[in-house]
Design a protein around this nucleic acid. Structure first.
Lengths: 222, 222
DNA sequence: ACAAAAGTGTTACGAGTACACCCATGG
DNA sequence: CCATGGGTGTACTCGTAACACTTTTGT
């Protein structure tokens, strides 16, 4: 009986949780919905998967269409498949998440989004659909993954200082880290190298700038 | 442009990877397909999700229908969404996996499964669809999860000896473990307790039997 | 000269690993 | 009495955590 008589069509969407560090806080990119349902409510970028594209391609396409962001490390998060999660009918969603460099992208509202904006994770508005649950799941995964992978490097711009990198770890992890231990363990990964340049950013000693050896690569450590 | 003009219907299936330890080897439960496509080939249990059930419910239902297995803790593995993964058309699948006690269940073929049988993970037949990839993904996840969760307890019968439990870890992990260190670390979790019973199983000292304190609970450790 | 962040090593502790012998039973 | 797996404690090692002062710059 696995092929039930009533096989109502099930639509498939993707939703993407885009994280970035802005002003020393973890932020999520949201879209203000321009159409029903949940018109005027904030929601995650995403949309329906086309019949001629893979689910992952659909997520990448939606991400670029609605936010202009491309070439980011998109990782599948979870598939949300409750019966009543979408008032339009039977819609399941494959959620992805992505980390983008601090300040390194132009956000623009497009498509059926009335507006697009960053929100601090600790100050989110009420979200459409089950997107609050999706963000919470992504946040938990991000925190966990920080501990055993090099995912945080995805948030760095091309050149960055070790202090900047440390701030990313501290903001996501929610606790202060020892500067010397942090530098020791990061450099031991051999994933970054000095560019030879310095950055002077105030009334103090300039900081050495680093770059990723192999951009886009995420390694499991430990 | 997120709502494309051509939104071909996408069907949604589930596939379930059931692991168990049998004769000191890791095994996967497969069914022999009774219908096209891939008729006569071995495949994972699973099938189409109905419109009035959640994806997780669909997985549990298909599993019971095709193999008789019920009441297992199913964990979502990954969603496979390539365009051409199913010759019948556009079908994506949400894969789940579960661990069941050694020998503690009656497997029976049913529904459109011609046969159901255990296969050693290192001796799998050629599988239908992309099920080989799904099994490989589940296997990798199982090995990883063994290291930082108490998932292995799911494979134990109601009463078990510490040596049995150690064999589970050794078979999945693929390496021998030190007996004293193993017992020390397992008991430190405080997840199992002595039943007070002994099991005599050969020409040697009888082993103490243990049980889970809270069956079904999986904890993250470390 | 002072404020502010960058940069740099050593010690201490604890978790994890290595390791060997006696115990209880069946045949 | 011998073969077989069950059961037990300690010492060492290595990775992680704690910790303070000097350097370079702008004002």
């Amino acid at each position: 009986m696995s092929s039930s008589t009533k096989r109502k069509p099930i639509s498939v969407t993707t939703d993407i949780v885009i994280f970035s560090i802005i002003a020393d806080a973890l932020n999520v990119l949201l879209i203000e919905r321009g159409g029903e349902p949940f018109k005027g409510k904030w929601a995650l970028p995403g949309g329906f998967v086309d019949g001629d594209e893979s689910v992952a391609d659909g997520a990448a396409r939606e991400l670029e269409e609605e936010t202009g962001v491309r070439n980011v490390y998109l990782e599948q998060l979870y598939t949300f498949g409750a019966v009543d999660r979408d008032p339009r009918g039977r819609v399941i969603t494959v959620a992805y998440y992505a980390l983008v460099p601090s300040g390194g992208l132009n956000v623009r509202a497009a498509s059926d989004a009335r507006d697009a904006s960053w929100y601090r994770i600790d100050g989110l508005p009420e979200l459409a659909f089950d997107h609050g649950e999706i963000v919470a799941t992504a946040h938990a995964r991000l925190i966990a993954k920080l501990g055993y992978s090099t995912i945080a490097f995805q948030m760095m711009p091309q050149e960055f200082t070790l202090s900047q990198l440390q701030r990313v770890y501290e903001v996501i992890g929610g606790e202060a880290l020892d500067k010397r231990n942090f530098r020791k363990s990061i450099l031991a990964l051999e994933m970054i190298e000095e560019t030879g340049n310095l950055r002077s950013e105030g009334a103090h000693r300039p900081a050495k700038l680093f770059r990723l050896r192999e951009p886009g690569q995420v390694r499991i450590v430990r």
